[in-house]
Nucleic acid binder design. Structure first.
Lengths: 217, 217
DNA sequence: GCGGCGCTCCGCCGCGAGAATGATATCACA
DNA sequence: TGTGATATCATTCTCGCGGCGGAGCGCCGC
């Protein structure tokens, strides 16, 4: 049985040793919480979670082995009760949406202060889902935007990789006219006029990422 | 007169309080160096530099008020002898090139360990310019690439903002044919076939950034 | 059952984009 | 002085892109 005064036990997952050290310092500057384990990728995170059963997990979105969203889902698949707070530099609305969708309890930006971090951890420990004003605002803008269909996502992914309409068509085994139809809808939803702007907007909003669309990184 | 055993005095500039704390922890885990001041943007950095005259400045590339490259130039304009180490998540070759061009003595990625950081600081303090293998490799690939002219840079900037050839032409007061000519050269240099791919490649290589091309961020 | 939505396919049509080629002026540098 | 790089403007041509309208099919939910 956990008493009221027992410190909150925390797992930190980030591929930057420097930022991990910073998180540890911020967390442990107060006696009410302590870091019990650290990890640099999702595999280590799951391993550490099983061993230490932390009350709260702080997780970066961009990790070497898989995305933080996948990491959150993996942790929740293993323990649906786990409390994950995503901490990242990426404030694109789609990233926020997906992370919360995956089951994250909060979404913080790396610009946050130590006080903001600790108050968010305490709130999540109380069962709340605190969202900073800036993040909540971006999430709202995501909500008011029409969702892209699977096909439209396929389109924008290949557009960013430089595919022509014909190449996209043969990639999916459909007609070029069908591709044009999807693009038409895509442009309307993104509020753009051509494929180039569609690619840029998709990158800005976090719908796709350069590190997943390019050959390496 | 500084003696051999006096600690190296360091200024840390990063807009993330968490990462600043991590850098401080990593630096001060050894007695041979200490952080004498911190800053969250370039203005604070220059202010702190004038007051504390640090031996070495650790600077992030992305800052709220101006880019880290501008920050390096500003510091060196004030004191050409200043020793700046850029520390960033961005490993695009153009970023590396510009930072070193601006006078940075080293370029480290945030994935580095505490040991790598400290050895780089010691090396710079000795007058060397240490570059991690990964960074050196990307810098080399940048070197083997033809440099873009000023006009070609103008082109790619407006392409990323969704301008058509006609709009680009009127923006600069030149003919659409001239724009086409520049684009032709640009495509060859970037190794692409159309404006969409040019935009993507320019973003990947760090020639331009979404946060400087879009309306906000 | 029926409407709505997503996916598919079809036509027509205008325009912008890019390829090919050539010419001229300027400037830096050898 | 000549050579190369840069920037400018021009002509012609082809083709991919995107606009516009229509239409059939399957799935899901009310």
């Amino acid at each position: 049985m956990m008493t009221m005064t027992a410190p909150i036990r925390i797992l930190v997952v980030d591929d930057h040793p420097g930022f991990r050290a910073g998180l540890v310092a911020m967390v442990e500057s107060s006696g009410e919480m302590k870091v019990v384990a650290e990890g640099g990728d999702c595999a280590q995170a799951i391993e550490a979670y099983k061993r230490h059963r932390p009350d709260i997990t702080l997780m970066d979105l961009r990790l070497p082995d898989m995305s933080g969203v996948e990491g959150v889902m993996a942790l929740r698949a293993h323990d649906p009760q786990c409390q994950v707070i995503v901490i990242t530099t990426y404030d694109a609305d789609e990233d926020i949406y997906r992370a919360l969708q995956a089951g994250a309890k909060s979404y913080l930006l790396k610009e946050m202060t130590a006080e903001e971090l600790r108050s968010a951890i305490l709130a999540v420990a109380r069962g709340e889902t605190p969202l900073p004003a800036q993040v909540a605002q971006r999430l709202a803008s995501r909500m008011s935007r029409p969702a892209l269909t699977r096909r439209e996502l396929d389109m924008v992914r290949l557009i960013v990789r430089g595919f022509s309409n014909k190449e996209i068509a043969s990639e999916f085994g459909i007609t070029e006219d069908t591709v044009k139809g999807h693009l038409k809808h895509l442009f309307v939803k993104l509020g753009v006029k051509d494929r180039t702007q569609a690619a840029i907007v998709a990158l800005q909003q976090g719908i796709i990422h350069l590190w997943s669309a390019s050959t390496d990184r």
